[in-house]
């Protein structure tokens, strides 16, 4: 039943990370987009920005709510998903692929040890729902 891909890593802030060597692609999870509802606006950093793990790097807004985005790992932003400016609803439609947010060149790849795998993330979501 899980919608959570097994090849990604996750955070307790409901973000996913697709690791490829020292490169990471970052987005928000199915659960995150579902609890936000229809996404209407995304504020992303600029290419070249340096992010530290845990730092706020942007904002995602739905009709109803605002949510901050926190960088799961440290590194330099190499790419942002500029398609989202015109079509933020892509995140609702395809949060794990077309709806990615940013790509980062990692400066501390070991930080991935702090991330959750899919089963741990699903368990976290269940516990959070109480």
């Amino acid at each position: 039943m899980s919608q959570t891909p097994s090849d990604l890593k996750y955070t307790r802030e409901h973000e996913w990370i697709r690791l490829d060597g020292n490169q990471a692609e970052i987005g928000i999870t199915f659960h995150a987009q579902k609890s936000l509802g229809d996404i209407v606006y995304v504020e992303l950093p600029s290419v070249g920005d340096e992010l530290e793990a845990g730092e706020e790097f942007g904002t995602i807004e739905s009709v109803k709510a605002v949510s901050s985005l926190f960088s799961p790992m440290s590194g330099k932003v190499t790419d942002i998903n500029s398609e989202l400016a015109d079509r933020p609803e892509t995140i609702n439609e395809d949060c794990y692929d077309e709806g990615w947010l940013i790509r980062v060149a990692l400066s501390e790849p070991d930080e991935q040890d702090n991330l959750l795998d899919d089963e741990e993330y699903d368990q976290f979501v269940l516990e959070e729902a109480g």
């Binding site: 509802g37 229809d38 739905s62 009709v63 109803k64 609702n92």
Partner: peptide, 11 residues
């Protein structure tokens, strides 16, 4: 219920 499927569609 906050929404069933889509806030915008319901609106």
């Amino acid at each position: 219920p906050v929404r069933y499927q889509s806030d915008k569609q319901e609106h």
